[in-house]
Write a protein that binds this DNA or RNA. Structure first.
Length: 858
RNA sequence: GCCGCCGUGGCGGAAUGGUAGACGCUGCGGAUUUAAAAUCCGUUGACUUCACGGUCGUGGGGGUUCGAGUCCCCCCGGCGGUACCA
């Protein structure tokens, strides 16, 4: 499209305004310590999930959330808030390194190039960021503080008494040995079975496995020495403290399910001819009388010792089969139950019944104790296994007293205990409590709360991540001094994974080997490390003494404002966080965990990072499918900007539908909002021989048109309300209606039109600034105050009343706003359309809603 | 399986328990134009009626209510997450 054909000259004025905002630092956000900082001004912190700067550039999904937060941020500025609305890059990560493997190009170079592209694309959309606060997780100064926070974790333990993290120096002062201290650190080393991917050359967190498998990489289970973070200590707090957050219930539930709290009991079983008891975890201690066998995970350490000589070969074969199967997709291929008898027997502590002990891969070593008591009558998995191997079934719960047994169906609900000795007749809840009391009294077991959440596997063997600030000597690890931070990775010539779990950094011998026999830790941190705390760094991005100053932290959490204390329920720092659902259990759980540790150690003053969370919905391609290169349905924001302009892109992203909803991209929809913007433009400008000149219709005269004033004031009111509740699509529709009202006028009053432009400004900042300037505005609309609507202009004296008969619309009447029921009824019964439906009937009831509706029940 | 989200015109979507379909797109008709683009005006749920109007209509079935897209119960369909967690 040539410029002449464009409905308004966005390609001229959009870059000009962007340049001016940048040059004048219009969106500079003053913080504590800045000359222009006003501590009395209330803060508003609105945050986007920062992008991973991939080589593909910005996707139209990015500007969806970014525009929403931009509108809120600009609106809050107009309402007098000191708005923090920053942007940065989550720039560590595998793709840059995969590219380095192919080309030998250092990941830092690729990453810098990608960031340049992203920055250009973001700037072309006119977002009101304070670019002085821009950060990348790969910046050495950023890495420095990521490593510093790791050292806080390394230097802390979780004190069960106080229920919070404390420095390990307290334990050392109490005379704890080095081994004892290392055993409780929040960051610790463990030999544990982990997910290892040979072709990625790294181990992965539980949470990441699915994602990479879906991308076609292989993943297998291996025992390796790894750094772990003790997130499990925070399991309960991570559940409980969700309550005070203003998050979608679905996301809270997702996190709760991921943490997976279950209440139950540990039960000890003596083993025939074996000294140590075997412990099992069960959520149904009330069904102990119904246990008919026991199952241990194939990897359980006791298996070899209890197996009888006769069964030894079969057990060993099965163990081997499970170990090799673990690199396959065990879930899909192994739905059928399998297992082997060990030859050993356990003794049921409640009735001395001998239970055969089996091993089976449906029992996981990594959950509970790695062993279960099997109650086939009341657990579908145990039932399936029992049927497969013809093991006995004993029913110990029934639906109600005297109920007939339900054959062929496993009864898992709560009911009444039967065949259970001292539990008989008790409800399931009471039977659980009674059994646990009995077990505790007889030292055969104890109450136990078990979580699915595992400790966070925190080390990676890749190059493009933060190195651990740790050195080793004589098999012991220790922190390097803070003065040596940031510890940056040395350049390498070869980034190829070796195929062994030996970290890439170990190739840099000179970097690894230090004087006095010290060796550097060669693992690197996962990409999550940087995204765990970036929202804190935005508050004080260039601080060289701390990761965030106390003053900045206090101000941006809202604690530093004596006149405006935070709402009692507010426990999070960021007022509004917008991003995709894909981070429901990964980033959002990790960041909460880090924040809580920093809170416990006194570095931040709120227990939670993000007060309000909103998930924007995925944008699909025009075909209703997920956008992907292979489908060829990807929309590039650059193309949309060059054809329709940044304002049209912004507006369309918001007009498509509710922010949180999944919705397809429709190019004709972009044209629709572009037409709307052109209408606004033509209200102020007329074309003469390819030149745009000010329209003579715009005149600085008082407005006497009551209809226009009503529509305009209604628009001001409602657009403000809709922005507050993130309903941008309807906000835009109100502005469209308002534009129609202006279009109908012969004379457009300047003052009222400027109010309208101010309301539209957060959505279409370039267009509105340009028109405002052409109309003689000397200041920027971006710095204007949000207009105050006039309630008097909204008042109507006569209103249309809906007349219904038996709930069906029959007529409408224009009545005084405050007409009483008698007046309204009389008027309604005078209508022929109403009488058609009431005449032959007696009126039984009248429902009258003043100013709205009258329903005659006949 | 389990958990969560969602079902409204040709399409994206609006509707504090009170006019279903705002706003936009598309289609159709018209104005303007030599013509087109752009722009402007009208129209656009289905059925029915010459017309005024009427009947039906928010995935399906029940219920609560003067009144239900909205609240309650059951069912069907789609999307997303998760999967032997004892």
């Amino acid at each position: 499209m040539s410029d002449l054909r464009k409905p308004f000259p966005f390609s001229e004025f959009e870059p000009a305004w962007q340049a001016r905002w940048e040059a004048e630092k219009t969106f500079h956000t003053p913080g504590p310590g800045d000359a222009d900082f006003d501590p009395a001004k209330p803060k508003y912190y609105v945050l986007d999930m920062f992008p991973y700067p991939s080589g593909a550039g910005l996707h139209v999904g990015h500007p969806e959330g970014y525009t929403a937060t931009d509108i809120i941020g600009r609106y809050k500025r107009m309402r007098g808030f000191n708005v923090l609305h920053p942007m940065g890059y989550d720039s560590f990560g595998l793709p840059a390194e995969q590219y380095a493997i192919k080309t030998g190009q250092h990941p830092a170079i690729t990453t810098a190039a990608n960031i340049t592209t992203f920055r250009r694309q973001l700037k072309a959309l006119g977002f009101a960021y304070d670019w002085d606060r821009e950060l990348a997780t790969t910046d050495p100064e950023y890495v420095r503080w990521t490593q510093w926070i790791f050292l806080q974790l390394y230097g802390s333990y979780y004190c069960e008494v106080d229920g919070k993290a404390k420095p390990v120096t307290e334990l050392e002062a109490m005379g704890w040995s080095r081994e004892q201290v290392d055993g409780v650190r929040l960051a610790y080393v463990a030999d544990t079975p982990v997910w290892w991917s040979p072709d990625l050359g790294t181990v992965l967190a539980n949470e990441e496995v699915e994602e990479w498998k879906a991308k076609g990489h292989t993943v297998e289970r291996r025992p390796l020495r790894q750094w772990m973070l003790r997130i499990t200590k925070y399991a309960q707090r991570l559940i409980d403290e969700l309550d005070a957050l203003d998050w979608p219930e679905g996301i809270k539930l997702l996190q709760k399910n991921w943490i997976g709290r279950s209440e139950g009991a540990i039960v000890s079983f003596q083993i025939v001819n074996f000294t140590s008891p075997i412990e099992v975890f069960t959520t149904r201690p009330d069904t102990l009388f119904g246990a008919t066998y026991m199952v241990m995970a194939p990897e359980h350490p006791f298996v070899a010792q209890i197996t009888t000589p006769v069964q030894r070969t079969a057990v060993a074969d099965y163990q081997k089969a499970c170990a090799s199967k673990s690199d396959m997709d065990r879930g899909d291929l192994n739905k059928d139950k399998s297992g082997v008898f060990t030859g050993a027997f356990a003794i049921n502590p409640v009735n001395e019944v001998l239970l055969p002990i089996w091993i089976a891969d449906y029992v996981m070593m990594s959950y509970g104790t790695g062993a279960i008591m099997a109650v086939p009558a009341h657990d579908p998995r145990d039932c399936e296994f029992a049927q497969r191997f013809e093991l006995p079934v004993v029913e110990v719960v029934q639906r109600s007293v005297g109920a007939t047994p339900t054959l062929f169906e496993v009864f898992c609900d709560a009911g009444i205990a039967i065949n259970s000795g001292f539990l008989d007749g008790l409800t399931t809840a009471a039977a659980k409590a009674t059994m646990i009391d009995w077990l505790e009294a007889n030292h055969l077991g104890r109450r136990r709360i078990q979580y699915k959440l595992r400790d966070w596997l925190f080390s990676r063997q890749r190059y493009w991540g933060e190195p651990f600030p740790i050195v080793w000597k004589d098999g012991h690890h220790q922190a390097i001094p803070e003065s040596e931070l940031p510890l940056l990775a040395p350049p390498l010539d070869d980034y190829k994974p070796s195929g062994t779990p030996e970290p890439l950094l170990s190739k840099a011998r000179e970097w690894v080997e230090l004087p006095d026999g010290f060796l550097r830790e060669t693992n690197t941190m996962p990409q999550w490390a940087g995204s765990c705390w970036y929202y804190l760094r935005y508050c004080d991005p260039s601080n060289t003494n701390r990761f965030i100053s106390h003053q900045a932290e206090a101000y941006w959490t809202g604690k530093g404002d004596a006149d405006r204390p935070p709402a009692p329920s507010a426990t999070g720092m960021v007022d509004l966080y917008v991003g995709g659902t894909e981070h429901a259990v990964l980033h959002l759980l990790y960041a909460r965990f880090w924040h809580k540790v920093l809170f416990d150690l006194g570095h931040v003053s709120t227990p939670e990072p993000f007060q309000k969370l909103v998930n924007q919905g995925l944008i699909l391609g025009e075909d209703g499918q997920k956008m992907s290169k292979s489908r060829g349905n990807v929309v590039n924001p650059d193309d949309v900007v060059s054809e329709y302009g940044a304002d049209a892109l912004r507006l369309y992203e918001m007009f498509m539908g509710p922010l949180e909803q999944v919705k397809p991209w429709i190019m004709q929809g972009v044209e629709g909002v572009s037409r709307f913007l052109a209408k606004v433009w033509r209200l102020a400008c007329e074309e003469h021989d390819g030149e745009w000149r000010l329209s003579p219709k715009i005149q600085d005269v008082p407005c006497t048109d009551k209809d226009l004033l009503r529509v305009l004031n209604d628009t001001i009111k409602r657009v403000g309300e809709e922005i507050e509740s993130l309903k941008f699509n309807t906000a835009i529709s109100f502005m469209m209606t308002c534009t129609k009202a202006f279009t109908a006028l012969d004379v457009v009053p300047l003052k009222e039109f400027t109010q309208f432009l101010t309301v539209l400004n957060p959505f279409a900042p370039h267009l509105t600034e340009e028109i405002h300037q052409r109309l003689g505005g000397s200041t920027m609309l971006s710095e204007a105050a949000w207009p105050i609507y006039n309630p008097a202009a909204l008042v109507r004296h006569e209103v249309e009343i809906i007349i219904q008969v038996n709930g069906k619309l029959r007529d409408r009447l224009l009545l005084a706003k405050d007409a009483d029921e008698a007046t309204a009824t009389a008027a309604a019964l005078a209508c022929p359309k109403v009488r058609d439906h009431t005449d032959a009937k007696t009126i039984r009831k009248i429902v009258y809603i003043q100013g709205k509706l009258l329903n005659i029940v006949a």
